[in-house]
């Protein structure tokens, strides 16, 4: 009796696993593999860190505002492709991203419009060839990277949302 029950248990487990496999193949986008999920979780902060480094050192090393924003947006693209889009959007909602983008745009507008006056004032207090240098370009890099990153994230949200509806 015990052995049959045991066998039945194993058999049922196998059937159940087959069922779950079928369910997995049905909507594969919803349930990604465990390896992909873990690697994404590990790599996400490092990609953000590299993007921040590219933005902050844009006036000393190759890089700048646009590559930094594209790098940060790549991390979010990885997140959206791996997990469900609704989960990701719950933590980083689209409306707040638009708010951040608008504030950064206004800051960049102010920086660029008053650059001719601000530049000469800021440079006096800075040390050349260090991170605290570059005059206006340091702040412009930071705000430009925020604008590009939020823009690409909003574009990717919109495209992926359309894809999953059908």
């Amino acid at each position: 009796m015990d052995t049959t029950k045991h066998q039945g248990g194993i058999h049922q487990i196998i059937i159940n696993s087959k069922k779950t496999n079928k369910a997995k193949t049905k909507n594969r986008l919803d349930n990604m593999d465990l390896i992909i999920k873990t690697i994404t979780r590990v790599m996400f902060p490092f990609i953000i860190l590299f993007g921040a480094y590219t933005a902050l050192h844009g006036h000393l090393t190759p890089g700048g505002g646009f590559p930094a924003g594209a790098t940060i947006a790549t991390a979010f693209t990885l997140l959206v492709l791996t997990f469900r889009e609704s989960e990701v959007e719950g933590r980083f909602p689209e409306i707040k991203l638009i708010d951040i983008k608008s504030i950064a745009s206004i800051a960049l507008l102010a920086i660029i419009l008053f650059e001719f006056a601000l530049r000469d004032i800021i440079i006096q207090y800075q040390i050349p060839m260090t991170v605290w240098s570059g005059g206006d370009t340091l702040f412009a890099n930071i705000f430009g990277s925020i604008i590009v990153a939020t823009g690409i994230i909003i574009i990717i949200y919109s495209l992926i949302k359309e894809e999953w509806k059908q």
Binding site: F66, V148, I152, L159, E162
Partner: peptide
């Protein structure tokens, strides 16, 4: 070219939507 790449990105995204 750095400026042009971002313009290309916006045009492509708009066209795809």
């Amino acid at each position: 070219v750095l400026t042009s790449i971002v313009i290309e990105l916006s045009i492509t995204a708009l066209a795809l939507v």
